[in-house]
Structures are given as C-alpha cells and as structure tokens.
Write a protein that binds this DNA or RNA. Structure first.
Lengths: 231, 231
DNA sequence: CAATTTCTTAACTGATGAGTTAAGGTTTGC
DNA sequence: GCAAACCTTAACTCATCAGTTAAGAAATTG
C-alpha cells in the first residue's frame, strides 16, 4: 500500500504545514508585510528548513496560491431534487457560506491587494474559483431552461445576475469591513430578495415560483439562520 | 482677496503634491511595499521636507485616504429629464465610467488589501463612497415609485439590486484582472442586460419601459461605446 | 547499532528602509 | 538688501529582513 518511506511522508506533511502557515501569515500581513521568520515560526519549523522546502519568499507565495485553488469546492453539483426553487435556495446558502468564510475572504483580500504586483495570481484565482462556479450555475440554469422553467437568451448573463443579486452586496460589505461582517439575518435579507428578483425576471411561472419561495422562506427560518459558519 | 501669504500657498500646494504622490505610490506598491524615498521622489521633494509635512509613514497614509474621500463624485444628482429609462441608462454609464477608472480601482485594491491591518479605512471608504452613492440611487428610485413608475417595498434592496445587476460582474473582473479590464462592449453587455432585468422586476410598465430601453440601446451604440475613459 | 540524512540552533551577511542630523543654499517678508 | 524661515543634499543611525553558513542533535534506514 504505502509505497512512501517515512522520510517522504514527513516531507509531504511538513510541506503542507508550511503552506498552511504561509496562507495564514500572508493573508494577515500581505506579501511585503510577511516575514519568512513569521512563516517559519507559524509552521513550527526553523528558517533553514523552510528554505529547503521553498527556495524563496516569492516561490512560497506562488506555491501557496496554487495550492489553494483546489480547495474551492464544487457547488451546484448536488441539486436537492426538491424542485428548482428549493435548489436555488439551497445553492444560494451554500455559496453564501463559502464566499463569506473569513479565511476565504482573507485570501481574496490578499489576492486583490497584490494583483498589481503579481498579475498572474488574479487570473489564476478567477479561473479556478469564480469561473468554475459560474459555469456550474450556467449548466444548472440551462437545464431548467430546457425543462421550460426558466427563460433567457444568455446563460452566462443569467448566472451573473443570480450571483450579483444574491451575494454582491453582502460580499462587498464583508470585503471592506472585516470586523463587521453581515449577520445571518442580513444575508437572509439579501439572499431572499435576490431570489425573488431573479425568479420575477427569469421564471416562466413567476407567480407559482414566488409562492413556493415564500413558503420555503417562512418554513426554514431557524434551520438556516442559526447555523454557524464553522463546521 | 488672497489672505494667504506666499509661504502658506506654497505649503498647501506642496502638501497637495505629497498627497497625490502618496496615492500613486501606495496604490502601486501597497502600504508595506511603499518607501518614503519613493514618495519623496514622486512628489519632487526631499525626504526631510516630506517629514516636515507628515510626521510618519502611517500619518501620511491615513491623511491620503481621508483626502481621497472628497473626490468621490456625486452621481445620481443630475437626472436627464428624458424619462426614467434614459435616466437609469445615463446613471449606469456614469457610474460605470467612475467605478472602472484605473486610479479608483487601484485605490479600492489598496484599501481592500490593507483593511485587516487598518480596519477603520474600510469603514471610512464605504461610508464616503458607496454608501453615499447608494443613498442617491435610493432617493431617485423612491421618487419614481412615488410617481407610480416603479414598484418595490425596500428602496435599499432595490438600489443594491440595480448596482449588483449592472456593475458587480465587470467590477469584479476589473478588480482581479488589472491587465485585462472589461472592454466597452463587455460593459455595455452587462449594463444593458442589468437594466433589462431591473425593469422587468421592478417597473410598473415593464413592456413599455423595456421597449424604450431597446430603442435607447440601438440609438446610441457609438456615442457611448467609443467614448474613452480619460476625459 | 552504525552510517547517513535531515533537522535545529544561533549567529552572520548584505541590503533596504524609517526617520534624523548638520551644512550650506534659496526664498520670502519686510 | 538683509535676516528669518524654509529648503536640499548627503550622509548617518538603527532596526528589520531575505537568505546563508557551520556545528551539533535527532531521526531514519539498512
């Protein structure tokens, strides 16, 4: 089974520790504000050992960002099977929980703050996270159009609209005010309103779907609203 | 008239030069990446003189950000008088032109990147820029509701929706990819689609207003599309 | 257990950057 | 025109930080 020697396992585990430490420190202090000593201490290794794993600060920064790509989860992959409105409602909350997670917000701030000095990281992040997510939304919406439940010309625009309606406001707030993130109640306000507007503009049966949505909203106020962010 | 001595005028003009230089350098390099020597050179002053105007790097940073607040223009103040659809169309483009300006994007990236270390700057920026703009939109939309042209319960949510539909996608793209900003054609695609969805969801006469919008779009493809960003 | 590899400690180098100081030059006020 | 205020130049201090080096301690392998 384990074709890896103890030495190789150690190496892999320590590299993981270094990357985790790097994410934490870089996200807190930015690129220029981060010291390699701080990364070494955070990872529990010594500085010379750190340099055996990554040959420079820039190499570590780049490796850390590339490692983070894979962490972006696959949303919009598991429709609930309880109908389009329930699917959209579930997706909206899954997405909100992810996109407003403090660690992912810190990563986003880091990337935005450094993108002018490292232009490739912005493109890489966009392609690995938001773009993949957007195409997941597009696929789902196209399926609902084929089933006659939605009506639109351009799936990409429809997907962008859904995202913008539901999460642009709370995410902007969270990005600019890390010490006053939107409460669950505020998020619910944006999410529910966003879904209403989306259905009103895109549903082929807006009246029915809006009624379904209102039923869903009043049925689940506690299950979602009291759920904490930390799993 | 001029109650100011030559010395006082000089002082004011040089302080202005320092703040402009600081904005440029901080926006390019971030807080930690900026050197006071670079600010001195950019402003054309010597370093000791620079320290006579601002006692530390942090004081300069803070003064620069506070100075920038006043630059946020007052949009949504001058309706065209050609009807709601034309107003919204005009506002959308004015706003797009402002919010996608490279210098304002750089400033936004700087603030987002440093907000964890300087939490007050995020709040200050939000209040001086986006919040004021949002209340301008709210006032306008409330006026149209009073005139029977729009229908909504919550003016704040309606204003957030308008903003999110029109500009969240191109602004996100511009934030993350400074070297590939959205073209005028892409912006037009988002703006026009956003206005369509907004009118479909909020207008009391969606059919008429959508027809007006389509007429407007096909009437002005060149005037707007070829306009450059630099005034 | 013995040889090898890999780690840690601790001190070091060289560069850079915040903030200062002193000597002379220029501008301004009167 | 002359004195005071202000500026520049240039060099300096002190702290920090990326990256290195050498010695010995600990783990790994056979």
């Amino acid at each position: 089974m384990t074709a890896l020697s103890r030495r190789q396992q150690n190496r892999i585990e320590r590299e993981r520790r270094v990357l985790d430490a790097a994410l934490k420190v870089f996200a807190e202090a930015g690129y220029s504000g981060t010291t390699m000593d701080a990364v070494a201490i955070e990872s529990g290794l010594s500085k010379p050992t750190l340099y055996q794993y990554f040959e420079s600060k820039e190499a570590l920064f780049s490796a850390m960002l590339h490692g983070e790509r894979d962490q972006m989860l696959e949303f919009f992959q598991h429709p609930s099977g309880k109908g389009m409105v329930a699917d959209l409602h579930g997706f909206a909350w899954d997405y909100a929980d992810a996109v407003l997670r403090p660690d992912l917000l810190s990563l986003a701030r880091l990337i935005i703050g450094e993108v002018q000095r490292f232009p490739e990281i912005g493109r890489a992040y966009q392609q690995s996270g938001p773009d993949r997510l957007l195409s997941g939304i597009m696929d789902y919406l196209s399926g609902r159009r084929a089933a006659g439940e939605l009506d639109f010309d351009d799936a990409e625009l429809a997907a962008q609209d859904l995202w913008g309606l539901i999460l642009s406001a709370p995410r902007t707030q969270a990005l600019y005010m890390p010490d006053a993130p939107p409460s669950r109640a505020e998020i619910a306000r944006y999410v529910n309103n966003g879904l209403r507007v989306f259905l009103k503009a895109y549903s082929t049966r807006p009246k029915d779907d809006l009624a379904t949505l209102e039923a869903l909203i009043s049925a689940q106020p506690l299950k979602r609203a009291l759920q904490q962010v930390e799993p």
